[in-house]
Design a protein around this nucleic acid. Structure first.
Ligand SMILES: [Mn+2]
Ligand SMILES: [Mn+2]
Ligand SMILES: [Mn+2]
Ligand SMILES: [Mn+2]
Lengths: 220, 220
DNA sequence: AAATAAATTTAGACAAAGCTAAAAAAATAA
DNA sequence: TTATTTTTTTAGCTTTGTCTAAATTTATTT
């Protein structure tokens, strides 16, 4: 396995995440995601194409090649294992881990990561509920549903939080919602698309449309 | 506290180590230490001087300023804490940790390092016996003696190993010597400057001049 | 189907960090 | 004290990754 620069890895990971949504990625999207300029993106695309990590024809959008995908899964594995370490072992709070993992993910010793994985007990999900690729790059394709789509009287387990900001953490903590929380939809209101949800024996809480769109669950 | 590039940090740390020996450092020495060219060193010296991290007049040698020293202690702290983590938590062997720590030391989140320190139980020495600067940059000035200098019938505790190669590890393990090992000098031979040493109830072992020069101890 | 707007690429610059080869300064030897 | 050698610095070039401004291509409106 070759080694890639920090910049290359950040681009590859960003493309990986963007193409999960739309299949193919555009220059502007990627520039937005990386807080850089479209011209810089074009330069990097040429480089990644030359290294056969990317399928790309000028003006046509792009997506990772099989090799590019493998590289991306390596970066994602490192990122999420470090997030787990920071959260579980170092007791970082939920919203501080991403930034630090953004640096740690580029330390590329394979042995380091595999030993870290073992030390952590081979966790399969990071603290945001995202699946961690295993040593062979296999990743659990968890079929989660957006909370917003559930109908009354359905029960579900919170498995993933999309927005990972401090503000999100604040509201989640206030409402006693976290990864693994079991909840039951009680009512939905057409007016503002808000819903009422029951968690354990706690009083019923209200969840706004905005919030529900960022919470993903597995139905039971 | 400002942030420095990976390259700047590697230069600063190397100067820190070199000046411990000689007080002042030369361009060629530093180029050798960093496996780079003297011309590249001169370029970096100018930059570090401009940032007031270095006392430097062309052709005159150089040493870190007070600020430069502080930066160096930060890098050394990170390096040695990660070495401890790799050795104690991830069970890396003694000779593999330096290389990985060489990368990890540049992840500069202060909170990460202080939490790691706490997680590790505030260790004061790394796996090679080198002191770890604390959160304020204070470092234990351990007054160790070279094993070669001890005379027969002296007892001592191994506190530091200078050469950190795989070859050194092999011979140390074979002879049951590690950091913390108590030993007693039994005989010294003028002929080849070798010595005989007793460790616990084990049979007496012979230590060559070459080996003894790389082992540092505290007398008891 | 033009005309206009938006997205993308190209051209040209720049900063960081490295290199080689040549020049200059300092140290050492004759 | 010269002459020679060693050390250090300077000059000029390269690569990586970024930027702005201009050109080009594609998409959207009239
Ligand atoms: Mn990153
Ligand atoms: Mn995550
Ligand atoms: Mn380093
Ligand atoms: Mn060490």
């Amino acid at each position: 396995m070759l080694n890639y620069s920090v910049s290359e890895e950040n681009y590859i990971k960003a493309i990986f995440h963007l193409q999960e949504q739309a299949g193919t990625v555009t220059t502007n999207e990627l520039a937005g995601e990386l807080s850089t300029k479209p011209a810089s993106v074009t330069d990097m695309l040429k480089k990644l194409k030359a290294k056969k990590l990317l399928h790309y024809q000028p003006y046509q959008g792009f997506r990772l090649s099989a090799d590019g995908n493998k590289v991306a899964l390596g970066v994602v594995r490192r990122h999420r294992l470090w997030e787990y370490f920071l959260s579980v072992k170092l007791k970082f709070s939920w919203d501080e881990i991403h930034e630090v993992a953004e640096d740690l993910e580029h330390v590329s010793s394979k042995k380091l990561i595999d030993k870290l994985d073992e030390f952590l007990g081979f966790p399969r999900f990071d603290p945001h509920g995202d699946p961690i690729p295993d040593i062979n790059g296999n990743i659990i394709a968890s079929k989660t549903i957006c909370l917003q789509e559930l109908t009354p009287d359905t029960r579900a387990i919170v498995s993933n939080i999309k927005d990972q900001s401090t503000q999100m953490l604040e509201v989640l903590q206030h409402k006693s919602i976290g990864i693994g929380t079991r909840l039951e939809i009680r009512r939905k209101f057409e007016y503002d698309k808000s819903m009422e949800v029951k968690i354990g024996r706690l009083p019923v809480i209200t969840i706004s449309e905005h919030l529900a769109k960022n919470i993903f669950v597995q139905a039971i």
